[in-house]
Design a protein around this nucleic acid. Structure first.
Lengths: 167, 167
DNA sequence: GCCAATTAGGGGCATATGCCCATACTCTGG
DNA sequence: CCAGAGTATGGGCATATGCCCCTAATTGGC
């Protein structure tokens, strides 16, 4: 089977002859399955590219959000919401970053139940370093799928991520 | 901010005034970030819908693949490739399914290094049960985003998942 | 036929996510 | 001002994924 699917993998691909390299699931119609597969693939691409920085995709996303916040350092709850992450899960994900001194916690003076997450200088530096590698991954993906396609897909994914009708 | 983004979240959304509910990342351009967020959101939707069956998205995907294989029971390596999963990771994910008696392993007579994964009767039953719940999640997503849109997006995600240029 | 290179999995370890429950605060009605 | 409801996190536990290295088995070249 050739490299490209021309952007589409129709259902009838299921019935390709034996001997072909690829196997296609009997449930090619499942939206979440294809989403998760694509997510894993893309994550592999980015993680590999950013490996020299010691940051993975998730960690990069977190530092990115902290690096360019829209309205000052966020609380954990706010950060979890933006990242579409479970609050507990975010807590766990922040642990390694804290351990490495890339982020710090501060008690929120406005509400002492919550804590504010702030980027340290080390965190900023690491983010900048990873950013270079991140860019190369972006370019790789863009050139493989086409810039316009890539951007349109990303916008659609963002809409899904924040679509309250799915929550 | 209203519920819908009309399918697109343009970059300039970054500069919305303070007071709005949603925070948008300073790196709205990252493809893998939006992919992972959308993946988490969709996973939450499906996992919640399928919770009564005791199966999660990943497990459902695995059983689905085993339930309707294109060319007989796959080896672990084949299964990992179809699922765009790391082989070790697949091994770990299969453990709970084996423990519950939904799948079994058989030595591959053609190559005794590898093992073949087969669905048990209990596995088939469980899959059928989950399938009902899965369908409701599918419908929920389809009706929220539109059937044609959903299908087109899914096909594009499948193309990405199996695009060798990204491997 | 035999040994080197290759390949399939397993084990261990680390991060990624999510759920549930406990705890510490905050807020709102009397 | 206080009790009870509501909210922000933390801790514990389970699955999800991936990487690296080790062992078993296969394969290819001589």
């Amino acid at each position: 089977m050739p490299v490209s699917f021309a952007g589409v993998l129709p259902s009838f691909e299921r019935t390709r002859e034996p001997g072909a390299v690829m196997r296609v699931s009997g449930v090619p119609d499942c939206y979440v399955t294809s989403m998760r597969k694509a997510s894993r693939r893309l994550t592999q691409l980015y993680d590999e590219a950013m490996a020299p920085s010691g940051l993975r995709s998730t960690q990069f996303s977190i530092l990115a959000e902290l690096s360019e916040p829209t309205q000052g350092p966020p609380t954990m709850g706010e950060l979890a919401e933006v990242l579409v992450l479970d609050r507990s899960g975010l807590g766990h994900s922040l642990r390694p970053l804290e351990r490495e001194g890339l982020i710090e916690f501060e008690v929120n003076p406005d509400d002492r139940r919550s804590r504010i997450v702030v980027l340290t200088k080390a965190g900023r530096d690491r983010y900048r370093q990873a950013h270079e590698l991140w860019r190369s991954a972006q370019e790789r993906y863009r050139s493989a799928t086409g810039a316009a396609e890539a951007d349109e897909l990303r916008d659609r994914l963002q809409a899904i991520a924040h679509d309250d009708r799915l929550a």
